[in-house]
């Protein structure tokens, strides 16, 4: 069976949720081969044992210092050596840059932001704010495909994959912009916006008061998002902005409270499995794409829903 290599994202020694999702995609296509760029790879390798992984390749070197450019060098050398059927990478800023550089180095086609890839390596992308679904394939080299987090439910497994070490060299060009200091994201108590299964977002209708939005999010174990209107007004951090110029999310449930649903916002959330909207304006465009819409004041509807959910949990 042919190998499908996937790049394991990790931060501060922990793999991201997306790593299990990529393993699941890889296994549905062929042998699932994880590649881990880390000097101390063992703790990361151990975390992969609960996912369908057939083999792990570790690559050590100054990858923390030189970032995506260096990882792309290592990945390209691995592709040339192993000639896998495909490479899967998470659609993050880093992931897409690694994919881009590896594509140029190896002369391989690239598809980004896929929400599915099937066993024949046909990808599905949702483009133009979710209004169009595109099916595409890579026609040259090793297909390099970046997949959005949360686009598949990771399959659990008990695996004890053999670990191989691969030696890669970092080119002089990739060493031109060293990382001189690094500040990891301060993780709040809530799940990460792009990884969360549920997102509750607030917009202009909050008038700057995100308390009911946060309370519902916490009752549901959800991440908190915000429209551009809310972040531009300084009501919520830009890092929580959902939309064309912010984060793209596709959770199981997206709750839009006091968000009108301009096309720019819809571009960031329209692939959510279920959409719930609360808006005072019965003409708000968001209500048209919602599976469940309440025309009403979020300051009445959200607290009532929050209380109900907490009561149900008992």
């Amino acid at each position: 069976m042919s190998e499908v290599i996937f790049l394991v994202d990790h931060s501060a020694g922990k793999i991201t949720k997306a790593a299990g999702e990529l393993a699941t995609y890889a296994k549905s296509i062929g042998d699932s081969v994880a590649v881990v760029f880390a000097d101390n790879a063992q703790p990361i390798v151990d975390q992969l044992n609960t996912f369908p992984v057939d083999k792990v390749i570790t690559i050590a070197g100054e990858f923390d210092k030189y970032g995506p450019a260096a990882i792309a060098d290592g990945l390209a050398q691995l592709l040339t050596d192993r000639k896998p059927a495909a490479v899967l990478i998470t659609s993050t800023a880093n992931g897409k840059e690694i994919a881009a550089r590896a594509s140029v180095i190896t002369g391989s086609g690239i598809i980004t932001d896929a929400v599915n890839v099937d066993k024949d390596l046909i990808t599905t992308q949702s483009v133009f704010g979710g209004s169009t679904t595109v099916h595409a394939t890579v026609t040259k080299g090793v297909p390099i495909i970046t997949l959005r987090a949360n686009s598949i439910e990771a399959t659990g497994a008990t695996s004890s994959a053999a670990v191989e070490i691969f030696a890669a060299t970092i080119s002089e060009a990739a060493k031109l912009a060293p990382i001189t200091s690094s500040t990891p994201v301060v993780k709040g108590g809530r799940p990460d916006l792009t990884e969360a299964s549920i997102v509750v977002s607030g917009g202009r209708g909050t008038n700057g008061d995100f308390k009911p939005v946060e309370a519902l999010a916490d009752a549901l174990g959800a991440a908190v998002g915000a429209s551009r209107a809310a972040t531009d007004a300084g009501w919520y951090p830009h890092s929580n902005q959902v939309g064309q110029t912010g984060k793209t999310v596709s959770p199981q449930l997206y709750v839009a409270a006091g968000i009108s649903g301009a096309i720019q916002h819809r571009a960031g959330m329209q692939t959510s499995k279920t959409i719930v909207a609360i808006n005072k304006d019965p003409e708000a465009p968001i209500l048209e794409i919602a599976d469940f819409a309440v025309v009403g004041d979020l300051f009445n509807v959200l607290p009532q829903a929050t209380a109900q959910i907490i009561a149900r949990k008992g």
């Binding site: 594509s103 002369g107 391989s108 086609g109 690239i110 598809i111 046909i122 949702s126 483009v127 979710g130 209004s131 169009t132 679904t133 595109v134 099916h135 595409a136 394939t137 890579v138 026609t139 040259k140 080299g141």
Partner: peptide
């Protein structure tokens, strides 16, 4: 010369 090929594009 594109290295990827759109097989189909459907309105959602």
């Amino acid at each position: 010369a594109a290295w990827s090929n759109v097989k189909e594009a459907l309105p959602r």
